[in-house]
Amino acid sequence: MKTIKVLGPGCPKCKTMFHNVEEAVKQLGIDAEITKVEDIEEMMKYNVLTTPVLVIDEQIKIKGRIAQIDEIKDLLK
């Protein structure tokens, strides 16, 4: 099972990223746990500066911009 986290303090870009992740997972039909991380202390563990950030299996994949659905699907394959 994939663990996916979207880090960000809950701004519009972060919400869009989270939605895109949900859509990508649905389209792929894979088993994944998706978490939105808004806690600042949790984010700091990842040394996050610009948000949103996409973390897949504890690896930072995209930071500081919104990932598109197809892009996320490629990262999950």
Binding site: P9, I40, M43, M44, N47, V48, L49, T51
Partner: peptide
Amino acid sequence: GGRSLRAAGFLVNH
């Protein structure tokens, strides 16, 4: 105060 807090955390971690 939001972005500067993350930058400060980054510095502490470094």
